[in-house]
Simulated assay, not measured.
Amino acid sequence: MRKLIFAISALALATSASFADPQEEREALMKANGRAMGALSAYVKGEKPFDAADVLAQLNKISEDAQKMDAAMLWPAGSATGNSESSPKIWEDPAGFQAAIDKFKTDAAAAAAAPPADVDALKASMGAVGSNCGTCHEAFRIKKG
């Protein structure tokens, strides 16, 4: 009986995962990354005193979310609908897009693994991580409004 309940639960979970909206998932990841980068920017701009624990938490959030990014799962063909900002270049150059994601993953993980001890070091970390955002957005994003 337990095996049957487990099997039904696993099937229900797998089915619900297959109905997940990749556009919503990727937008949620992007918004979370934007919030984390915004929090880090406040330290760089001097709007908040440097807080090493919060900086590490934000860098960990960015790194964790970066690791969730998978072009095939979050940008499947046909998923640019409605208000999507995804450029057709994503599907025209899937290898280039995946390479951009992979670089972001690597740089975000490196930043979290070596947390900055002060604002100057944070600037360097943000430069490395943030350049990935800018590069990818320039090549693979449609600017709305």
Rank of each mutant, 00 (worst) to 15 (best):
A10N: 02
L40P: 00
D120T: 15
A53W: 07
A80E: 05
G38F: 13
L11H: 08
I101N: 01
E27A: 12
M69S: 10
A66T: 02
N33A: 03
A80M: 02
A95L: 09
D102K: 04
Q23C: 04
A109R: 01
E92R: 04
A113P: 06
Y43D: 01
D93A: 12
R26H: 05
K105P: 00
S9R: 05
Q58G: 01
H137M: 09
S9T: 15
P88I: 04
L74T: 00
I101V: 11
P115H: 02
L4N: 03
T15P: 03
A114M: 08
K123V: 11
F97Y: 15
F19N: 03
K123G: 13
G127D: 00
V119I: 04
A117K: 14
D65F: 08
F140K: 02
S63C: 00
K31S: 09
G78W: 05
Q23K: 13
E138Q: 14
L40I: 03
R141L: 03
G134Y: 06
T135F: 10
L13C: 09
A100H: 09
N60S: 06
A14V: 07
A32T: 15
Q67M: 14
D102R: 02
A71E: 15
G134T: 08
K89V: 15
K48T: 12
D54F: 07
E64A: 15
A32K: 13
F97N: 11
A110I: 02
Q23G: 09
T15C: 10
K105V: 02
A110D: 02
K68E: 08
L40V: 02
A14E: 05
E24T: 15
A52R: 03
N33I: 07
A113R: 08
D93Y: 04
F50N: 05
S63V: 00
A113H: 06
F6N: 08
E24N: 13
L13R: 00
Y43L: 05
L29I: 15
H137K: 09
D102H: 06
A66I: 01
K61W: 06
A117P: 08
A99W: 01
R141H: 07
A57R: 14
Q23R: 12
A109M: 00
M37T: 11
T106N: 04
T15I: 14
V129P: 05
D93C: 10
S16Y: 03
D102G: 10
Q23T: 06
P116N: 10
A95N: 08
L40W: 00
D93V: 10
L56Q: 15
F104Q: 13
A57C: 08
N83Q: 14
K61C: 09
T81K: 14
A66L: 04
M69Q: 11
S18V: 13
N83D: 15
I90Y: 02
T81R: 11
Q23N: 11
L56F: 01
A72Q: 07
P116D: 12
E47G: 07
A7D: 04
L29S: 02
L59Q: 00
F6G: 01
